[in-house]
């Protein structure tokens, strides 16, 4: 099987965590450095991990979205390859317009770290069709999903909302924790599936998302 590409920007800090998770699932991870472009056909999937790319300066994800590697990520997305953005990776995909909407500062104006329960919905290759609620940790300061009314209606109509919080931690519109593009191959979520891969981490529900890389 082709390797899973993991992007690294200056300030990315969940890169090793995603690497470890991908390895734990029995797959081969490979780094994608932000200054380089790559051939999408060399990779089975691309994960854009979380962190504070470029210090979160200006707006979260805005500076990373302009990096050369994102040109290749866009190509991969256009070709239908599975692309997943986690936390800051979700913000980057939104800023790169590969995903609809934008993530703004939590309603509390505070960073929040806690375990949340999520209701999966919609159709994306990133979700195992088990259907049950998922328990995953969140850790972000700017995770409140925002979109205008028209775009939101479209998201609902087309089934692009794939994860909703049961107990909204950040004031997200309609409890949205994750959205996909129209085709469903590009998905973003604020919670961290790579932090819930083993029982000792406090739960294994992250496998329901990252485990889909296996098929």
């Amino acid at each position: 099987m082709k390797p899973v590409g993991i992007t690294r920007f200056l300030g990315t800090n969940c890169d090793r965590d995603v690497w470890q998770a991908v390895e734990a699932l029995g797959l081969a991870p490979k780094w994608l450095w932000f200054e380089d472009q790559f051939d999408p056909s060399d990779y089975s999937a691309v994960v854009v991990p979380g962190g504070f790319s470029h210090g979160d300066y200006l707006r979260c994800g805005a500076l990373a979205a302009k990096a050369p590697v994102m040109k290749s990520v866009s190509e991969a997305a256009a070709k239908g390859a599975p692309v997943l953005g986690i936390c800051n990776g979700f913000q980057i995909l939104c800023e790169a317009r590969l995903l609809p909407g934008v993530l703004v500062r939590n309603e509390s104006r505070k960073f929040i770290d806690k375990w949340v329960t999520l209701a999966p919905a919609g159709k994306t290759p990133w979700l195992k069709p088990s259907g049950g609620p998922l328990r995953l940790p969140v850790a972000h300061g700017e995770g409140r999903f925002h979109s205008d009314a028209e775009a939101l209606k479209k998201l609902n109509d087309q089934g692009q909302i794939w994860l909703k919080y049961k107990d909204n931690p950040n004031g997200s519109l309609e409890d949205i924790a994750g959205v996909t593009n129209e085709k469903g191959n590009v998905a973003g979520l604020m919670p961290h599936p790579e932090r819930a891969i083993h029982d000792w981490m406090g739960g294994e529900d992250g496998r329901a998302i990252l485990g889909t890389l296996l098929s």
Binding site: N13, C14, R16, D17, Q20, A21, G51, K110, F111, I112, D113, K114, P137, A139, H192, E194, R195, I197, W200, M201
Partner: peptide, 25 residues
């Protein structure tokens, strides 16, 4: 206080600030 801290980045945390002893693997 501790909800404002990222307690899990690094993928090693076994027991976090909620516990009387914190543990990394």
């Amino acid at each position: 206080v501790y909800q404002q801290y990222d307690q899990r980045v690094g993928g090693r945390t076994v027991r976090d600030c909620d516990d009387s002893v914190s543990v990394v693997k």
